[in-house]
Amino acid sequence: MNFQVTVLKILAAYPDGFAVMEDLKRDMAILATSGRDWADRTRRLAARVPDLDIWSQGLVERISGGWKITVKGRAVLEFMEARPAAPEPIPVPSVEQTVVASPTLVPPLRQPADRAKRRRERRERRREARERARANAS
C-alpha cells in the first residue's frame, strides 16, 4: 500500500506526471531510505483510501518505458492529502466540574533546578566511569 502511495507522490511531482522506470526507481530508493517520517506519512495517506490499487483503479498507466499518473490518480492523491474536516470542538469543563472530577491531589512537577542537578550528577558519573576505564586500560 505504501508503495502505491509513493508511486503516486513521485509521479505527481514530475511536470507532466510521467517518469521513466530508472527515475522512478531512483526516487523510490531515496524515499524508502529517508527514514520513518516518509513511512509514517505514506501510511497516514494510505489509511484515507484503504482499498487503493493504482493499476485496477486506473490511477497510473504504463506508457513506453515508464509510468504516468492519470487525472483520476491526481484526484485521489489530492483527496488523500486534503486535511480532514475540522472535528467538533471538545467542550471545556467548567471549574466546578474540574474540581469535582479530580478530588485527589496531583503532585507538583519537578522543578528545572532538579533536572539540572540530575544532569550534572549524570555527567559526573560518566566522567568518573571514563576515568576508571582509562585507568584500567593502562
Rank of each mutant, 00 (worst) to 15 (best):
I10H: 07
I10V: 09
I10N: 02
A13F: 05
A13G: 10
A13C: 02
G17I: 04
G17N: 06
F18W: 00
V20Y: 08
V20P: 02
M21C: 04
M21W: 13
D23H: 12
L24V: 05
L24M: 07
L24I: 12
L24R: 05
K25S: 01
R26G: 02
R26A: 10
D27H: 14
D27W: 13
M28W: 14
A29S: 09
I30E: 12
L31T: 05
L31N: 04
A32M: 13
T33W: 09
G35S: 03
G35C: 02
G35N: 02
D37L: 07
A39Q: 11
A39G: 07
A39E: 11
A39Y: 10
R43Q: 09
R44G: 02
A46F: 12
A47H: 07
V49K: 08
P50S: 10
I54A: 04
W55R: 08
W55Y: 14
W55M: 03
W55P: 00
Q57P: 05
G58C: 07
G58E: 12
G58M: 11
V60L: 02
E61N: 05
I63C: 10
I63A: 13
S64R: 12
G65N: 08
G66D: 03
W67M: 06
I69D: 04
T70V: 01
V71K: 01
G73K: 01
R74M: 06
A75Q: 09
A75H: 02
V76A: 09
L77N: 01
E81G: 00
E81D: 00
P84Y: 01
P87E: 03
E88Y: 15
E88K: 09
P89Q: 08
I90Q: 10
I90N: 02
I90L: 15
I90V: 14
P91K: 11
P91N: 06
P91Q: 05
T98K: 13
T98Y: 14
T98M: 14
T98I: 13
T98R: 15
V99M: 13
A101Q: 13
S102E: 06
T104S: 06
L105H: 11
L105W: 12
L105M: 13
V106F: 06
P107L: 07
P108A: 07
P108L: 12
L109I: 14
L109A: 15
R110D: 05
Q111D: 10
P112R: 14
A113S: 15
D114L: 15
R118S: 05
R119E: 12
R119Y: 09
R120C: 07
R120T: 12
E121P: 01
E124R: 14
R126Y: 00
R126Q: 15
R127Q: 04
R127Y: 02
E128G: 04
E128Q: 15
A129T: 07
R132V: 00
R132F: 06
